[in-house]
Structures are given as structure tokens and as C-alpha cells.
Amino acid sequence: MEIIGMGFVAFFMLLGSFLGRILGQFLGTGGDVGGVGLAMLFMVLTVNYLENRGRMFKPRTENGIKFLSALYIPIIVAMAARLNVVGAINGGLVAILAGGIATIGAMFLVPLLSKLKK
């Protein structure tokens, strides 16, 4: 059933969010630190573990997960539509330069660090 796939993702999101909050308390920053990353990590480990033991998901369960993945880009579009774009432009020169140079600079560091991989 498709809902089982959706529930599977939901379980890891809740697990990650809980662990992220523990991490946030532990570090003293509060909030959810890396919950999404932890959720993804545990999900990858679980799926790979199950597949190595020859236990594949049923096609309909898999459909539930794939449906969510397919909604990912439209949701990003909705997210873009609720950003404070006016605020970003009104932040003035210091905001545009600080944010802009940090972004472009970081992008050009990508090839440098990618070469470090060994």
C-alpha cells in the first residue's frame, strides 16, 4: 500500500527530528540541528540493509515514496513563492554584497574541495 511508503518516510523524519532536537539541546543551540540529514542517513542505511538481505519494497509501497520524491520540485516552487524577496532587495547594498559574494565565492570552492575526496 502506498500509505506504508509515506509512513516509512514519516517515521524517519520523526526519528531524525527527535535526534536533531537532542543534538540541539546537547550543543546548547536549541532547535533541530541536522534532523533532516540524520533522517536521510538512517533511511539510506535501513534501505541498503534491507536490500542486502534481499528484502525489497513492494511496488505499491515504493510508489508512496516515489510520489513524495516527485512532489519535491513543486514544493520548492511553492517555497520560493513565500520567501521574503522584497525584504532581500530592501536589505540594501551591504546585504546584497555580503550574501552575493559569499554565494558566488562558495560555488567556486566546490571544484577545489571535490578534488580532496581521497
Binding site: 518516510v9 514519516a10 536521510m40 533511511m43 520524491s69 512532489l71
Partner: peptide, 8 residues
């Protein structure tokens, strides 16, 4: 929720 699903 949808980002996490892409980890599949």
C-alpha cells in the same frame, strides 16, 4: 518530508 523521501 519530500527532501527526506529523496534519500530512497
Amino acid at each position: 518530508y519530500t527532501i527526506i523521501s529523496t534519500a530512497y
